[in-house]
Amino acid sequence: MLKIKNIFLSLLLSIFTSFAFAAGEMHEPMHPDWSFQGPLGKFERAELQRGYQVYTEVCSSCHSMDLLSYRNLIQEGGPEFSEKQVKAMAAMFEVEAGPDADGEMFMRPAILSDKFVSPWKNEQEGRISNGGAYPPDLSVMVKARPGGADYLYSLLLGYEDETPEGITLDDGVYYNIYAKNQKIAMPQVIYEDGVEYTDGTAATEVQMARDVTAFLAWSAEPKLEERKRIGFKVIIYLIILSFLLYFTNKRIWKDTSH
């Protein structure tokens, strides 16, 4: 009884105090223009392809993307790599398979239907490698934070060389303007020329942050383009239908005084 009461009280307390935190200790993120904004917005293929490259070369050493399979990279509305490209990209990762005829598990190169290979065997391994902080899965990250893509983009660029006075950082904690309480357990990972883009684009910090954020926006909402396309048609159809009904209705009620 007492335990439940305590849990409950601390819960309520956390509800009551949280708003003060949220309001006072987060900074409004930057608001760059995104191609996928707005009712007609779409992803840019090249941006998503570069974003995948940044994810694989920079983020994937710490962050998993469990909800994605390699085949998703081919699908319409995504980066739309060719099947051949993705087969080659998947083959760079190894997955455990089996058991074979002898009952042994074995390693084989990943194929299209495999999920993205995780950097960690389990959460504990991820934690111990990152000073106790687990790098969260990035599959739906853009939808899992209030500021969405704006927040992620800002966070990636929010590191400063100098920590302002009055802020003390524990070991393995970094100063970031856009993080909650300006502290985060992820180091700065985006540096100029951190990747060499295959399409020749100059890999500035802003470019890389943009590309990888767009890629994560797609991974969180892979059906975005289809959704907006269908939605547009549905709404036009409903508007026309409502006009027709409006006049039908008028006609029906013509002779009734009301």
Binding site: L238, L241, S242, L245, Y246, T248, N249, I252, W253, T256
Partner: peptide, 11 residues
């Protein structure tokens, strides 16, 4: 009378 009016509102 009301079937059409209701459907109009519904749409």
């Amino acid at each position: 009378h009301y079937v059409v009016k209701d459907v109009l509102a519904l749409v």
